[in-house]
């Protein structure tokens, strides 16, 4: 297991296990509702043509986050 990195810095196509959300308030609750829960596995799917936001797969759903949000979510890279 590697040390946690920001979801923002994860490469397209990688899978990560969420470790922590450095967010508070409504956004935190929204992210939790969508499945961005520590312990869950997230896959980095694709960046928007303009570079941001990025689409992530979590719980079999595709959720797009901007870098402002994905920069606050930490996860550790899973071996492929």
């Amino acid at each position: 297991m590697s040390s946690p990195i920001r979801l923002l810095d994860a490469k397209t196509g990688t899978k990560l296990r969420l470790t922590k959300l450095e967010v508070t308030g409504v956004l935190r609750r929204r992210l939790l509702d969508l499945g961005f829960v520590p312990g869950n596995v997230v896959e980095v799917l694709q960046k928007s043509p303009l570079g941001d936001p990025t689409a992530f797969r979590v719980n079999n759903t595709t959720i797009a986050l901007r870098k402002e949000e994905s920069g606050l979510i930490f996860a550790e890279l899973l071996e492929v």
Binding site: D33, L34, G35, V58, N59, N60, T61
Partner: peptide, 9 residues
């Protein structure tokens, strides 16, 4: 049906 896990939440 295609994303039950989150929906069950």
């Amino acid at each position: 049906a295609t994303s039950l896990e989150r929906n069950l939440n």
